[in-house]
Structures are given as C-alpha cells and as structure tokens.
Measured scan of single mutants.
Amino acid sequence: MSIQHFRVALIPFFAAFCLPVFAHPETLVKVKDAEDQLGARVGYIELDLNSGKILESFRPEERFPMMSTFKVLLCGAVLSRVDAGQEQLGRRIHYSQNDLVEYSPVTEKHLTDGMTVRELCSAAITMSDNTAANLLLTTIGGPKELTAFLHNMGDHVTRLDRWEPELNEAIPNDERDTTMPAAMATTLRKLLTGELLTLASRQQLIDWMEADKVAGPLLRSALPAGWFIADKSGAGERGSRGIIAALGPDGKPSRIVVIYTTGSQATMDERNRQIAEIGASLIKHW
C-alpha cells in the first residue's frame, strides 16, 4: 500500500482519535458579512469528516447552483462504474471539434489522439474542462443518470439537468442544476469515506481534487503551510461562485467545507476574496 493510499485508508482512524471539535460562531459572522459585502445569498456548511456531524452552517438547506462543483460527483459516478466493471479508466475516447464547448483548455489539445477516461476526469476536476465533463456525462448516460446515481446514494436534493455550459445559467428560483450545502457536503463525505467506492477509487477521487489547479484564489489562499486540501470550485452566471473541499491540518483532511453564493453584482475577484476570507476565519478558529 502506498503512503497516499495509507493516508486515505486511515482518515477515519486518525479522526477518531482527534480531540473533540467545537464550532466557532466567528466564522458564521464572516459568512454573514460576506453576504453584506456581496449583496447576495451565501450558503455555508462545515462537517466533521469522521462523524458527519454538522459543526457550523448557514442557509444549509437553500438551493444554490452547483456550477462546476458537480464534476466531482460526476467522476465519482464514473469511478463507481469502474468498480462495477462497467468502465475502464484506460479506455480512450475520441471526439471532434464539434464536441468542444466553451472553456476546454485540455480537451482542445487532444482532438487528434483523444483522451482516456482517467485523463478526462483529471481534466474535468483539476482544470474544470467543460468538454471533458460533457464527454464523461455521455459515458454514464447524461445528466439524468448522474441525478439517479445521487438518488441511489441517498441524495434526493442534488440534481443535474443540463450539460456544460448551460448548467451554469443560475436563474433565480430555478431548481435545475442545483444542490443544497448540506446535501453536497453529505454526498461528498460519502464519496470520500464511505463504502460506495473502493479504496482505490476513493484515493483516485481525492487525488484529482488535491491536484486542483484553478481554485488557488479561494480556500487555498488562506491555508497555512502543512495543511491538506482537496477541492473543486465552480463559477456561473449572475454572480455565482462555489467551492467544495476536504481539508485539515497535519497533512490530512478532517472536515468537509461547502460554500456557495449566487445573485451578486460583485466582480469575480471580490467573490473570490470573500470566500478566501471565510476560509481564513475557519482556519483561525479551527
């Protein structure tokens, strides 16, 4: 067993022997301040990774656009098919120029040779490549099948209805392509620590998230040296922004954090800054 596999296998073990965790309302004060600064709703939840206990939450059962955070769930569904012998990570998928959609920095470079399922998941999570996500959605049967996968996990809230990039439209009061912070946090925890996926697939999923290259201005910008984070960000229309993450000190994750916002007129930089400040408060009061 590799060191990384050992780390993920012992996530519940280490967490069980940690000192009790206590909620700190100071972080919620910052979440509410972010709402004021952005002029928009902000949803927040913080779960203990081992027990699933909610440590703090704000608007945990209000719907927010998922945006690209759905790509972690998508690759979880792909990995479940791999575990069941219905898919192979090494299978190569070929596609054409007509398949390319807006923001496809990886797939646009491989029109000639195609990409493997493993490479597509890596591109979808680490670079948020939209064509990679659409190609992977095709392998599982489309958005409705991802929703069905989530329902089978016990998540009857999260739903995907459309493809990239239309799913980022974020129309107010439109339930399409949305989740709730509580539902997303619980589902992410199941994917990373539950028995739904094999140990190898859980490790692969967290490795992809740990290698995320496009979430630097968010929670990662607030992390002290030595902290662990595996995350996936999302951005959408109407001032929408979000991030889902597993993080913790001492090089291992111990909490799940989900943050979503929508309806702001603020710039992307300002949305990023507010999420980073929430992260800084979380870490300060850990």
Rank of each mutant, 00 (worst) to 15 (best):
L196G: 12
A182K: 14
M1D: 01
I278C: 04
T198L: 09
P25H: 13
P143D: 03
R202K: 15
T262P: 01
I243W: 04
L218Y: 02
S122E: 15
I244Y: 02
I3P: 13
L73M: 11
E210M: 10
T126D: 07
I259S: 01
A225Q: 15
H110Y: 13
E62D: 10
V21D: 05
P25Q: 13
I3T: 11
G226V: 04
D48M: 06
D129Y: 00
D99S: 10
N134R: 04
P181C: 08
T131R: 02
N98L: 14
P217F: 07
V8Y: 15
I275M: 11
L196D: 11
E61R: 13
W286C: 01
T139G: 12
G242Q: 02
H5N: 14
V72I: 09
F64M: 07
R220N: 03
H94F: 13
Q203A: 12
T178H: 02
F22Y: 10
N152I: 10
D129L: 00
S2T: 14
T187I: 08
N152Q: 15
V31Q: 01
D177N: 04
R41M: 11
A266S: 13
N168E: 04
G239N: 05
L223C: 13
F149A: 08
G251F: 08
E166W: 15
H5Q: 12
Q37M: 14
R255A: 04
E61A: 13
F70M: 14
A9T: 15
N98A: 15
S57Y: 11
T112P: 12
A84R: 12
I3K: 14
L100F: 09
N98C: 07
S240D: 05
G142M: 02
V29I: 15
T193A: 15
T139N: 10
R273A: 10
A215L: 02
L191Q: 04
K252L: 10
R118A: 15
E62K: 06
S122V: 12
A235G: 11
K252P: 05
V117G: 02
R118G: 15
N152G: 13
G76Y: 05
G194M: 08
K53Q: 12
L73H: 07
R220V: 03
V117N: 03
S68Q: 00
A133I: 00
E237F: 09
L146V: 11
L28A: 10
L19P: 10
S80K: 14
Q4N: 15
E46F: 08
V214T: 09
M180E: 15
T147G: 09
I243H: 02
S221I: 10
T178P: 00
A276S: 13
K213N: 11
T187C: 09
L223H: 03
A15E: 04
L199N: 14
S128L: 00
N134F: 03
Q265C: 09
K30Q: 10
L135D: 01
T112W: 15
A133V: 02
A123H: 03
N173P: 07
L167G: 05
L199P: 15
L282Y: 03
